[in-house]
Design a binder for these strands. Structure first.
Lengths: 219, 219, 219, 219
DNA sequence: GATGAATGAGTTTTCATTCAT
DNA sequence: AATGAATGAAAACTCATTCAT
């Protein structure tokens, strides 16, 4: 998930052990964020990763750097899943949508932080990735609409919402059971996307229209 | 939500000012839990409630006592919503189910901690309330199944999962927008519950079968 | 121990229940001081006494008032024991000394705070009582010296030291066993007081010469 | 007192500065425990040691760890003193006993927590050390009994009791004066150990027979 | 006279962060 | 590049004290 190719990102290639440490830190961070939220103690993350806290700081200068990388890895996954779905969309567009959602549910431990309602991406790379998501999903929906496989009022936001909700960690439930429940939920939801007999939906904002708070809201 | 009648619970009735403080603490805790998770600083909760931290400790001897009361209030709400839905189930059982889910989305600020995947209820009272939920929801589904208004393979777990997911806080999103998205999501989901053309669902555990961890899982 | 006669002390006689509370508070304080030191939490003392903390404050305006009363009760006991010993001193002066020491060991739960090395008495009453102790003990020793029953270099300070040490609480030992060990210790010590074959003692200060610190020493 | 040799204890050798801090913390703890009891504020101990409170916590994860090390250092001292005394026991066994007791009185600031009646040793190392004490003292007494230098009914418990009592801190008395009084007390006690004219002692438990409470007793 | 309640000021404990090795 | 160590600052929790009932 965390591409570390030297040329592109501009960061120097890491020594092998350093790269391993970095990957372990990110894995530990994802687990910790899922269980304890993004405020999870950094030394706890270091401990789970089996590295010293100072090593974590060397790789990620502050908590936000770590959070942003997790966000970015999540976006990368979503885009990959969307591309995969698009590949099969021509054959069965509704199945493609379901495939997209279930792929995310399967890899929900990478999607710890929700697409919406999660930390706002600030890293240039993450912002760029995020902006690609809505068009991809609209493309996916276009296939389905064209074939009349889907109710016309469903939007990319509904897919994003569903991905965000179905992948939310349920910290006190074993991963396996949480995934099973989320899978059933997605099944029913996708059935609800079919056009037959569907009731009118209330209006939906687009991803861009969503106002996001830089701080968790204090409503 | 938090009924403090003297006779039943066994706790002595609180003085009026103390009862007010207690309610404010719980309200502040719900908000803080939604924004920051159940690890939210207790002194922040006290500050929001406008009481001294020691007052919070007098009412709730530790963080878990507070969490448990929030859990319990959530269960109480779910049961109320289920009863309300049952009242209208004879007329339109599918509408009753939607009414149940939307009522919870509306009062999502009381349902901060999810029915499943949230802190395990340990207080006797909470355990008892929780055990009443599944039967009520099955009763609700029975109405719908009897009228053929619903696919036969949907279970109370699907309603619980949906309630849990649709009410999860999306901390960086304004409440209003989060509620709008959740509402759309519930609409589509409920449409997916209709029997026509529904595909087979994978098997579902019951609420009782769910294994829960006393600690957030370390999968 | 705590005489509450109205006339003498100047304090108004207490209502019966108040007097009972006062006695319970003092008993609880002695136990708590023995186990936890004089810094024992006042609300813990109140709890053990079965009264509300505010009731404790009504009787004893601050911690020192409580400590001073315990000190005073200790002095009262020492004086009583000395008088008792003097009564039998003419017959067997060494036995009288031993009787004095063993009486204190027996009532060590009243002598929680040591004669020396304990909180400095500040209440007028306590200061006055304390000043009576050395003369009484010297009188006791005089009997013994006169009969040649005791080494001539032993002083009242040796008795006070022994009383102080032998009554020190040993918090992790059951009272009974602590008393048994202290009793043996006193036996041997008193045997050491006999004149035959005794070696020279290093010089001793008098009770008055002892410099005491108002704060526990920071040597 | 606190030997930190790497090989034996199993703990990795500390960096030089860390070892210095550790020693200062222990010294400060002993002083504080003597003056304020084992409930002395840990931040006060850190302040006296000249280190940050978090440094104290890094070395000693909780109060008990600190208490246990002080207990252990006390046992180490007692064993050293007993060995020293055994060295000279053949020449003058009674003098050797006195030397043992006076050595402890001299180093009473290391023996802050009493051998008996103090916190129960739980650390494996401390338990082991403690079990060596009684045999050493019996050996010491054996010399004296063999030479008829001592009453036959005195046991190792009497030495332990005396060491425990004579070293108890007398917080409101300057160290020097407390030591002077304790020294005299030991003198007389040792004279009481001589066989001539000694009266019968009441029975004594052994160190092993002593029942100890894991909590300070609530008699 | 007694108590439930509240609070300000500690004390304990944890955490983020930096530094020296 | 990695780690042991240290620390300031925050958060958890306790305690002494006062007030209103």
């Amino acid at each position: 998930m965390t591409s570390r190719s030297a040329g592109e990102g501009g960061r120097p290639r890491l020594r092998a052990d350093a790269a391993r440490n970095r990957a372990q830190i990110l894995a530990a961070a994802r687990t910790a964020f899922r269980e304890l939220g993004t405020a999870a103690p950094l030394d706890e993350i270091a401990r789970r990763a089996g590295v010293n806290i100072a090593t974590l700081y060397r790789r990620f200068p502050d908590r936000n750097a770590l959070v942003q990388q997790v966000v970015l890895d999540g976006f990368t996954l979503v885009i990959e899943a969307a591309h995969d779905a698009l590949d099969v969309a021509p054959q069965d567009p509704l199945a493609a949508i379901e495939r997209f959602l279930l792929r995310l549910v399967e890899e929900r431990d990478t999607l710890v932080l929700p697409l919406i309602g999660g930390p706002v991406p600030t890293a240039r790379e993450a912002v760029e990735l995020k902006s690609r998501i809505a068009p991809l999903l609209e493309e996916l929906l276009a296939h389905a609409r064209a074939g009349g496989a889907i109710r016309p009022d469903a939007t990319h936001m509904d897919l994003i919402t569903t991905a965000a909700l179905a992948c939310r960690p349920l910290p006190y439930l074993p991963e396996e059971q949480a995934a099973a429940l989320a899978t059933r939920h997605v099944h029913i939801f996708v059935d609800g996307l079919r056009p037959t007999g569907a009731r009118r939906l209330p209006p939906s904002p687009t991803l861009e229209e969503l106002s996001v708070h830089l701080q968790p809201n204090r409503s």
